[in-house]
Lab assay of single mutants.
Amino acid sequence: EPSQADLDALLSAVRDNRLSIEQAVTLLTPSSGGGSGGGSMDAKEILTRFKDGGLDRAAAQALLAGRTPA
């Protein structure tokens, strides 16, 4: 399960175009075949909204942490 520091680094990389959204989703869902963790939004949607400015960093982190299976 990614830590808050991992999520923060991942969000920074996506925002700075050092990591594509697809690459980030793969890192967030290493063994689930890329499927959502059952959250209301999947990781790709969360990351896309964050990059487009629709979500701030704290909200994106909380959503990603919340949808990651324990």
Rank of each mutant, 00 (worst) to 15 (best):
L11V: 02
K51S: 03
R18C: 09
A5R: 07
R67G: 14
K51F: 05
L64Q: 01
A13C: 07
K51T: 03
K44R: 10
K44S: 10
D6Y: 14
S40A: 12
A62R: 13
P30Q: 11
S3M: 07
A9G: 09
D56M: 04
D6I: 13
E45Y: 04
S20Q: 04
S20M: 03
V14Q: 01
T68G: 08
A24H: 01
R57T: 07
A65W: 05
S32G: 13
L64V: 02
A59W: 05
G66T: 10
I21C: 02
G37K: 08
P30H: 09
G38R: 12
R49E: 04
S36T: 12
P30F: 08
D42N: 10
A5P: 14
D6A: 11
Q4R: 10
S36L: 10
T29A: 09
S32H: 12
I46S: 01
G38V: 14
T48G: 05
Q4W: 15
D8E: 12
P69T: 08
E22M: 06
L19D: 00
L27D: 03
T26I: 15
G53V: 01
S40W: 12
D42P: 06
G34T: 13
G34A: 14
D42W: 09
A59V: 07
V14S: 00
D16A: 06
A62I: 12
K44N: 08
R18P: 00
G33I: 12
A65D: 09
S20T: 14
I46R: 00
G39E: 12
F50D: 00
D42K: 11
R49V: 04
A59M: 12
D16K: 04
G38D: 13
S20D: 04
S40I: 11
M41Y: 11
L64T: 01
S3H: 08
R18F: 06
T48F: 03
G53S: 03
G53Q: 03
D42A: 07
S31Y: 08
L28D: 01
S32Q: 11
L28K: 01
R18H: 11
A13G: 05
L64P: 01
K44G: 05
L7S: 02
T48N: 06
A59K: 08
R18S: 09
R67D: 15
L63R: 05
G54T: 11
A24Q: 00
G39H: 13
L55N: 01
L7P: 02
L55S: 01
F50S: 00
G33M: 08
R15D: 05
G35I: 08
I46N: 01
L7A: 02
G33D: 11
A60H: 00
A9L: 11
R18I: 13
R49S: 05
D52S: 07
G34K: 11
S3L: 13
G38M: 15
G35M: 13
S20N: 04
A70D: 15
S3N: 10
A13D: 08
Q4M: 15
R15T: 06
S3E: 09
N17Q: 05
A58V: 11
A5S: 10
M41S: 08
L7K: 02
R15Y: 07
R57A: 12
A43N: 05
A70I: 10
A59N: 06
D6T: 07
D6L: 15
L47M: 03
S36A: 15
A43P: 10
A9P: 03
A13Q: 05
L55Y: 04
N17I: 02
R67S: 14
D52P: 01
S36E: 14
D8Y: 06
R67W: 15
I46Q: 01
G33C: 13
D56W: 02
L11D: 00
D52I: 05
E45S: 08
L11Q: 01
L7M: 08
T29K: 10
V25Q: 03
G37A: 10
G38E: 14
A24Y: 01
G37V: 13
G66V: 09
M41E: 10
K51L: 09
S32A: 09
T29R: 07
V14P: 00
N17K: 08
A43W: 06
I46C: 02
A43T: 13
Q23G: 06
K51Y: 07
R15V: 10
G54Q: 15
Q61E: 15
V14Y: 02
Q4F: 14
M41T: 09
G53H: 04
S3T: 07
A58Y: 08
G66M: 06
K44F: 14
E45W: 04
G33Q: 14
T68E: 13
G53F: 04
L28F: 06
G66S: 09
T48P: 01
P2C: 15
S40H: 12
L11C: 02
S20A: 04
A13W: 05
G54P: 02
R57I: 08
Q61I: 15
T48I: 13
D8C: 12
V14I: 09
L28N: 01
S20E: 04
F50E: 00
S12M: 06
L7V: 10
A43K: 06
Q4T: 14
A65N: 11
A59S: 13
A5T: 14
L19Q: 02
G54A: 07
A62W: 03
T26W: 05
A24M: 03
G33L: 12
D52W: 05
S12V: 09
F50P: 00
M41V: 10
G35L: 11
V14R: 00
R18M: 10
D16H: 08
P2N: 13
Q4K: 13
M41W: 10
S20V: 02
A13T: 02
D8T: 06
D16R: 05
G66F: 05
G66L: 05
G66A: 09
I46W: 02
D42R: 12
K51I: 06
R67P: 09
L11M: 05
E22D: 13
A24K: 00
V14L: 07
G35W: 02
A58M: 10
E1Y: 15
L64K: 00
G53T: 02
A9R: 09
A70N: 04
A65G: 13
A59Q: 14
R49T: 03
G54Y: 13
G33R: 08
N17M: 05
A24N: 00
G66N: 11
L47H: 00
T48C: 05
A70M: 01
S20R: 03
V25R: 02
G66C: 10
V14T: 02
G53N: 04
A13L: 06
L19H: 01
G66E: 13
L10S: 01
P30G: 15
G54L: 15
L28C: 04
I21P: 03
E22T: 06
R15M: 15
T68I: 12
I46K: 00
T29L: 07
S31V: 07
L10Q: 00
S36N: 12
L28T: 02
L10E: 00
S31Q: 11
V14N: 00
D16P: 00
G54W: 09
Q23R: 07
A60K: 00
E1T: 13
A65V: 10
A43S: 06
R67Q: 15
V14K: 00
A60N: 00
V25H: 03
D6W: 15
Q4V: 08
G34F: 03
G38K: 14
T29H: 12
S20W: 02
S32P: 10
Q4L: 13
L55R: 01
A62T: 09
K44L: 08
G54V: 13
G39P: 12
R18V: 14
S12I: 11
G35A: 08
G37D: 07
L63W: 03
G54R: 15
A65Q: 12
D16W: 03
S40T: 14
G54S: 15
D6Q: 08
R15E: 12
